[in-house]
């Protein structure tokens, strides 16, 4: 107890929900959280102002990239029960399919978590989890004890 970094009373879900609430940009996108088994999932509701291509129509690639960022970050917060948010160093997004104007789901896997940095892989899908529409790998700096 008394440790600001690892607070035993807090669960990963509580930390993830608080980070989501405090992030104005994630709130603007109306990203929500849900738990599937032992996995944290994100949900982005479809919205007309998130369309990047009006002819198809398709969700904006930048918004999908943002969702991958938020998904990777919150998965890390959830698994490591981080009180302070990790900081994104870089992200590499591959766009695989058109993001249709549907609900978009996200999930991420912490590949490696060291003392200072973590590597996370995230993916997004819509109606079929086996058909991802975008994937990403991201490097995060972890919050340091006492900072």
């Amino acid at each position: 107890m008394g440790d600001a970094f690892f607070n035993e009373a807090e669960t990963g879900l509580m930390c993830a929900e608080r980070h989501l609430e405090r992030a104005g940009y994630a709130r603007f996108l109306e990203i929500r959280l849900m738990i599937e088994g032992d996995q944290l999932q994100t949900v982005l509701p479809p919205r007309e102002d998130l369309i990047g291509n009006v002819n198809l129509p398709a969700l904006h690639g930048g918004v999908l990239g943002s969702l991958l960022d938020v998904t990777a970050s919150l998965a890390l917060v959830y698994h490591a029960v981080l009180t302070n948010p990790p900081r994104l160093v870089n992200i590499d997004v591959d766009y695989l399919r058109t993001g249709r104007v549907l609900q978009t789901f996200g999930a991420a896997e912490v590949v490696r978590m060291g003392r200072r940095a973590a590597n996370v892989r995230a993916r997004l899908w819509q109606d079929d989890p086996e058909r991802p529409i975008a994937v990403a790998r991201a490097q995060f700096l972890l919050p340091q004890r006492g900072v």
Partner: peptide, 22 residues
């Protein structure tokens, strides 16, 4: 609405990524 976190008041990396993509 582009905020990373209430406490730090910096641009969210996701917002920067989105405008770069655009």
């Amino acid at each position: 609405r582009l905020a990373n976190d209430e406490s730090d008041q910096v641009f969210h990396t996701g917002a920067i990524l989105a405008i770069i993509d655009n």
